[in-house]
């Protein structure tokens, strides 16, 4: 019997993704997060009603990867842009996709106040502990002692502060519906992160509340680490500083 007649496709490219090839480096978790988001959009059947707000950073073209409407915000302002879209069109599902330099440095004010107002948006926060796009400078999330091009001797907390825990910070507010931190360093965590992204989108569709899904991600290029090594670093070191799990679930 010909093999093709007995095999069915069990994993395909999400329909809500375009055919374009990602511009990310080999092994970069931005691509995986894009796929997870695409799978969640497919599962909820919301492709026609979703708007992706892209950041400044390596994900600057994020709106190119989805067969959805999209816009690219000024650096750090994605949550404010998403707020405007959602208030004008509450029937749409609005996703603010942001890196840690974007969300937690230049965009700190927009981030915190959108969360505090409980804007009914979904924020996907890619915490790769570095400014990937601009050449590996220190981010607010860079680990103590971690080397970056702007702290070549390693982050010194005495003068540079400790890594900023965004999910914990947002979880102190009264309005957010769902705040969680996830990781992608192995298949089990990829599955959990997928469920978290789905839940955050579902809450927006059903309950119209604010969600933040922080995803601990890699930057093999900025970290100067091969992708598998980077996954091991996340499992052994990064998740000790950024513990995983749900912080708020009022859904």
């Amino acid at each position: 019997m010909p093999e093709t007649q007995t095999l069915t496709k069990v994993f395909a490219r999400p329909r809500s993704l375009t055919d374009k090839r990602f511009t990310y480096c080999p092994g970069c978790h931005h691509g995986l997060i894009t796929r997870i988001l695409g799978s969640a959009i497919d599962k909820l059947g919301i492709q026609e009603k979703t708007v992706i707000v892209a950041p400044v950073g390596c994900a600057v073209f994020a709106y190119e990867w989805f067969r959805c409407d999209g816009v690219q915000a000024a650096h750090g302002r994605a949550a404010a842009v998403a707020t405007g879209i959602k208030r004008a069109r509450p029937d749409l599902t609005v996703v603010s996709y942001q890196g840690d330099g974007d969300l937690a440095a230049i965009g700190t004010a927009e981030t915190i106040h959108a969360a505090n107002r409980g804007e009914a948006i979904t924020v996907i926060f890619v915490n790769n502990q570095i400014y990937g796009m601009t050449g590996g400078q220190m981010a607010p999330t860079t680990l103590d002692g971690q080397r970056a091009t702007s702290c070549p001797e390693g982050r010194d907390p005495a003068t540079m502060g400790h890594p900023l825990r965004v999910a914990e910070l947002i979880a102190t507010l009264a309005a957010p519906l769902y705040v969680t931190r996830q990781s992608l360093h192995d298949a089990k965590h990829i599955a959990q992160a997928t469920q978290a992204v789905e839940k955050a989108l579902r809450y927006q569709v059903e309950k119209r509340g604010y969600s933040l899904v922080e995803i601990v991600a890699n930057c093999p290029t900025g970290w100067k680490m091969p992708p598998q090594k980077a996954n091991e670093h996340i499992a052994g070191t990064v998740t000790k500083v950024f513990p995983l799990g749900d912080l708020v679930d009022r859904g």
């Binding site: 095999l7 069915t8 090839r21 298949a187």
Partner: peptide
Amino acid sequence: TGCALCAQTCPDVAIEVYREK
């Protein structure tokens, strides 16, 4: 086995998986 763990891990969505019906 067609478990698709490879495809779920691929950052570039480069893998499709087929499984015996």
